[in-house]
Simulated assay, not measured.
Amino acid sequence: MSESDAKGLWSGRFSEATDAFVAAFSASEHYDRRLYREDIRGSRAHARMLADCGIISADDGAAIDAGLQAIEAEIEAGGFPWDPALEDVHMNIEARLTQRIGEAGKRLHTGRSRNDQIATDIRLWLRTVIDGNLALLRRFQAGLVDLAEREVDTVMPGFTHLQVAQPVSFGHHMLAWYEMLVRDESRLHDVRRRANEMPLGSAALAGTTFPIDRDQTCAALGFDAPTRNSLDAVSDRDFAIEFVSAAALTMTHLSRMAEELVIWASPLTGFIDLPDRFCTGSSIMPQKKNPDVAELVRGKSARVQGALHTLLTLMKGQPLAYNRDNQEDKEPLFDAADALRDSLRAFADMVPA
């Protein structure tokens, strides 16, 4: 692919090639490629709408749809030729589409911008992430209830100031954890509701003169409604910050639980015996059984809190509308989402065992 093809979306007024370091510095495809499913899903809905509105021909719409399906299969089979020179997931997929189907592939970008495209992709991705987290939360909650019922007559000391205070039921203590998770679940539902608005159609910042049908695309992608203001839609990352905020609070709860597990599993107290498969030993101290999973969850809470601080700082100085700073939103968002998912799974597997 020629350099002009690689940068055909934006290079018209430039008289020299981008510096090699700047090209590498600017690229995001090595991490935003994980949005390929959402990017293709949004593009297929967009192409169908363009064809239905008569903005592109029905033949072009059909060719684009078939090409995008083939590209998705190619990516999932591990044979997609990702190219850092194409900057991001959007340009990689569109360039490959044009290679496969010819000029019709270039018409996919009609009536949209990468600005509204990425905002839509992230919202689509985040919906799936939240649904997965909610499923893990509910599994952990169910495990806690089962454990509480089994141990309702087990007496343990209750603490204040980490000093023995009053006797309580171990089951009662597990249900205290359960209440934390109920609030966490509620917050994730709130985040999902606010994230479920569609920016597509906002284009770069001021909409498009093409007679697009945002309601059709919105319904096809399962959003509750299109966003109302194009300037806000392309630059808003509140939904990402809200998710990471909810994740940070959930991780704080898991960290508190982890701290109690570490204390309870210590020979100094001996309240519980964690399953061997969630612990490690020592090569020179065979008497040790280390609660590594609980400790790692406790440590990962710091990563998610750091991601929240990163996103808040990222956004605090940005004028409307879109700025390239927003490329930096995805790595902390992805990292927080991965840490939350893995920590919830660890606790859902470990605690009721």
Score class of each variant (00 low, 15 high):
1 M>R: 11
7 K>I: 09
8 G>W: 07
10 W>E: 04
13 R>Y: 03
19 D>P: 00
23 A>C: 01
26 S>P: 00
31 Y>M: 13
35 L>W: 07
35 L>A: 09
44 R>P: 01
46 H>E: 09
53 C>R: 15
53 C>L: 00
56 I>E: 06
59 D>S: 13
70 A>K: 07
77 A>T: 01
88 D>K: 01
90 H>Q: 10
94 E>K: 08
94 E>L: 02
95 A>K: 09
95 A>G: 12
98 T>G: 02
107 R>G: 04
123 R>C: 06
130 I>A: 12
136 L>W: 03
141 Q>D: 08
141 Q>F: 02
141 Q>S: 09
141 Q>I: 06
143 G>R: 04
145 V>K: 13
148 A>N: 07
150 R>Q: 12
153 D>M: 12
156 M>L: 15
156 M>W: 02
159 F>A: 05
163 Q>M: 14
165 A>P: 11
169 S>H: 12
183 R>Q: 13
186 S>L: 06
201 G>A: 08
206 A>Y: 04
215 D>R: 10
218 C>P: 10
220 A>D: 15
231 L>W: 09
231 L>N: 01
239 F>Y: 15
239 F>T: 02
241 I>A: 11
242 E>R: 04
255 S>P: 01
262 V>K: 02
266 S>G: 10
275 P>R: 10
292 D>Y: 05
293 V>R: 00
300 K>M: 02
301 S>A: 14
306 G>M: 05
315 M>A: 12
316 K>D: 08
322 Y>N: 09
330 K>F: 00
341 R>H: 11
348 A>Q: 06
349 D>T: 04
